[in-house]
Design a protein around this nucleic acid. Structure first.
Lengths: 195, 195
DNA sequence: CCTACCGATCGGTAGG
DNA sequence: CCTACCGATCGGTAGG
């Protein structure tokens, strides 16, 4: 036997996540997902309500996980430079460790129907505001020196987005190594001054 | 009359570009494109050979334009810091001035059939190598100080990718202003030392 | 969990 | 440039 996995809502979402990431939401049929799990397409509806619900759930779980990881990374950290470094590291780590979810979140917002679409956009914006707040705090306290904190925070959030495309988990560098590198880039972008 | 545009291959590509950017390639039908131009879907085949050709041509023209603009921006510039600043500025300017093409290039490579897909990837990689060469030259001559030139060049190329999402051409800053800001970020990332 | 099937939509062609 | 139409595929349901 090649497939002995018990079909479950999570198994369907995992298969859908990988296919949505590689072929897109519109380019993936319920039959494609079913074939991965070795069942017929109609059988999927015993586990999930619809294709649209699959997409929304994948993205919503991914956003909640990212937001929670960001809060954990910032909890109890007082130095604003450490805050920015950790926020950047945890962001890049999320990109590297969950490449399929991140790709789906990046490319399939347009495939979400309302009100799901707006709900995901709100969570994505909340993530961005959290980064911006750190950058602004660093500027207000004179630890950072950058002309446009808002633009700087966008650049920091975005610069690691494609790292998952070239990162090799079995290569010379670990995901944490790469994340640390981006953390140092973030501090340079905001013009961090020590002490 | 609401539409008096003469239908031409370029008009079809322009309509397709905007629809592919907002709805995706698979989410856009030939009928959708035809409706923008106020003709029937079969009529489009008098101007373009296929939907797939539309996608490939849009992306290929966009990549050639970006590569040419990069060469023009670097022509005759000797100082490596100026080279990196200009390369970053022209990259971000391309993102801001051609948001639909850039979105299509970013999200629809997976919708391209071979050999078109590989040809576009090759052009995208050539662009990245050009940026990397500048960063490496700056490191080799001691003008830049960054541990991983390759990762730095990826970060620089990527950081402005989403600027088109929040940039408002009628706002306080011009596209050139925003591009200049990213140019300064690039020099900070590579640890540029003056003189 | 399956087969059989529904109405809708797709890219593209025929023929004029 | 049009209408009429082709075969294929889609998400989802019926019924068991």
């Amino acid at each position: 036997m090649t497939k002995s996995t018990v079909v479950s809502p999570q198994a369907v979402r995992d298969a859908a996540r990988d296919l949505f990431a590689s072929q897109g939401y519109r380019g993936t049929s319920m039959k494609d997902i079913a074939q991965v799990l070795d069942v017929s397409a109609p059988s999927l509806y015993n586990h999930v309500p619809s294709k649209q619900d699959l997409l929304h759930t994948i993205m919503d779980v991914a956003m909640d996980r990212a937001l929670a990881a960001l809060e954990v990374a910032l909890a109890g950290v007082n130095d604003v430079a450490d805050q920015l470094r950790r926020a950047t590291e945890v962001t890049v780590l999320d990109f590297l460790e969950n490449p399929a979810e991140v790709t789906v979140c990046n490319t399939e917002i347009r495939s979400l129907e309302e009100p799901y679409r707006q709900a995901i956009i709100d969570k994505r914006d909340a993530y961005g505001r959290r980064i911006l707040a750190v950058v602004e705090h660093g500027c207000a306290t004179g630890r950072f020196d950058v002309a446009e904190p808002r633009v700087a925070s966008f650049a920091i959030l975005e610069m690691g987005n494609n790292a998952k495309a070239w990162f090799d988990p079995r290569g010379h560098y670990t995901a944490q190594d790469v994340a640390a590198l981006y953390g140092s880039f973030a501090l340079r972008i905001v013009g961090h001054r020590a002490g």
